[in-house]
Design a protein around this nucleic acid. Structure first.
Lengths: 332, 332
DNA sequence: GCCACGCTCTAGAACGTTCTAGGGTCGATC
DNA sequence: GATCGACCCTAGAACGTTCTAGAGCGTGGC
């Protein structure tokens, strides 16, 4: 019936194969201490009984859990890209991932609490909104790595992109195309928003364009970009840098619907290099966060902490890369 | 630090409070058998020591796991909406969710295998691509509920939308607006694609429009819709029904970029009612899958199976609902 | 005064695994 | 021929919890 008979355990396999439980355990873990012949026989029995190790019992007994808890948010395409990278990185290093989602009706605190009960060895948080103090409290009991935001706390590790530099790249690119009237649609209350906004302001100043600097309140979603676009339509700049790709697509959509050609009338630069931004029909120029490096480092850092290594600096800042595609061009 | 001292256990709390381990367990589970006074005292100590129950040990001992494994795919916005609903439904019924993602480099088999080791009580699979026979094999060892696709196997439960009916609704709506030249962009190899395609064909026939019926190969993503749109541009229909919302947005984008106005020149109907489709700047007419009902039923069904109930019919088919927004209008 | 009962509490087994300590066996070495 | 070491294997404790059985005790009815 599916849940009918009890699932087979080590003891079942041992009995069937005529050996001790301990020996089966050795074989299943591929640990030294069994002859090739018995190894073969035990494996055959295990296969026949369709034995599946019980990771709960396994983790319970063996203390160290090789399990990383990841908190991500639903409806953030870039988080999906990060998850993809995290799975890769974890697999390379022999760790498992356990996910906990933040949804419109399930907050970050709940998501974290769930993982704490699962006794993961460490936590990786994608763009957490939890206040620093509270993050610190969690970090008091297990290693915490925050991604895509700064956390000024001595117990919390951080892996993030150099967001200020990202906006320098974006503005430099636009300036090199002849743009001067460059606006910025920010991320509203999102945490990396202020770094990016500041990066934009600095870059504009560096080019002597502070007179043109204009920041419009945005957010992380398409509707935020769309709203910002409508606001810009009164007096459109020749170029705009946007908090992230998702918001940029919302903005692009509204601009085009109002007859502006991109990049003819207006150039647009996104942020993240989310996988959808490289789709042919979107073809968005954007500031790429280095997903591979970030996820690899985040996992590595978490594991180092689990192993009790003392790591020198808690914050790793990865340089971004500008990816020029079809939404930017010379000023018309 | 962080992983410095061992995390407190029931025994620690018991020792500190001067009672037995069993009693602390009773208090933590809020089970009957402890006086109000000790209850209070034990809770106070637990709070002070920052005790967190170990769900592994808990589940291991108590057999039944109140844990539902969910397999979802990354970069499918509608799966995110489903996750949101599943979390709600699970919480209402006192179950936990454990997630396993399918990514471009992590296939469904791997995702399922992970959950099997976690000993979840049942599996919920979002639009699984696994062949029926293999799903059946998994269902042989624990209850499996597949969502958003049909599975003809006597051990696999199915909760899905009446996709044929969904396309009837879409076509009926377009016909009532005066459209006759209505094309369909399908989902390619995706599993509900054939039902929806068939629903489209039936509806066209029912309206005596088989001469106009035209199916373009699509897929689940934006780029598939975009590709299909380019194909349609030679000889554009006055309306098009699309496999899903994501594909529809790709299609919309290309159509508009080529100077077609929506819904002036062409009407577009999506499928899913993904949360982004209701954003003001997308404002997509679409066939809504009833997320609340589907997720509630899927969780309920999984739990019934876990409890060993014999459920009459294995397939639950939910009627869809047409949501008329801004991408459909009278034929121009 | 005795027994039965309800209430609060406890001891100890059990869940399925890993780990530690050690028991055989066999061939080689002194 | 005893000793050793390498190799294969096993018994039993341990992980942190829940569960079963029952102990202690105060109360009430006869």
């Amino acid at each position: 019936m599916g849940s009918g008979e009890r699932r087979p355990t080590l003891a079942d396999v041992a009995a069937e194969a005529g050996v001790s439980v301990a020996l089966v355990s050795i074989v299943m873990r591929d640990a030294p201490g069994a002859s090739a012949a018995t190894r073969e026989r035990v494996l055959e029995v295990a296969r026949r009984l369709d034995y599946q190790p019980d990771s709960r019992a396994r983790l319970l007994r063996s203390g160290r859990s090789r399990l990383l808890g990841v908190v991500f948010a639903v409806q953030h395409p870039f988080h999906d890209d990060m998850l993809t990278g995290l799975y890769d990185a974890a697999e390379r290093i022999g760790y498992e991932l356990t996910l906990s989602a933040v949804t419109p009706r399930r907050d970050e605190r709940t998501a974290v609490a769930g993982l704490l009960q699962d006794r993961c060895a460490a936590l990786v948080l994608l763009g957490p909104l939890t206040p620093t103090a509270e993050l610190g409290a969690i970090a008091g009991r297990l290693p915490v790595v925050a991604m895509m935001r700064t956390v000024r706390h001595r117990q919390v590790d951080v892996v993030r992109t150099d967001d200020a530099r990202g906006l320098h790249l974006a503005v430099d690119h636009l300036v090199s195309l002849g743009h001067r009237d460059i606006a910025h649609v920010d991320g509203g209350r999102w945490l990396s928003s202020s770094e990016r906004r500041q990066g934009y302001r600095d870059a504009m100043r560096r080019h002597g364009l502070e007179a043109y600097a204009r920041v419009v309140v945005g957010g992380f979603g398409e509707e935020d970009g769309a709203r910002a676009a409508r606001e810009l339509l009164d007096r459109p700049p020749t170029a705009v840098t946007v908090f992230n790709d998702l918001s940029a697509t919302g903005l692009l959509d509204v601009l085009r619907r109002h007859g502006l050609s991109v990049p003819g009338d207006i150039s647009v630069v996104g942020y993240d290099d989310s996988s959808f931004s490289r789709l042919a029909h979107i073809d968005l120029t954007t500031v790429a966060q280095d997903i591979d490096t970030m996820t690899t480092l985040a996992v590595a850092r978490a594991v180092e902490r689990v192993d009790g290594a003392t790591v020198a600096h808690r914050e790793v800042v990865i340089p971004p890369r500008l990816v020029v595609r079809g939404t930017t061009g010379p000023v018309g």
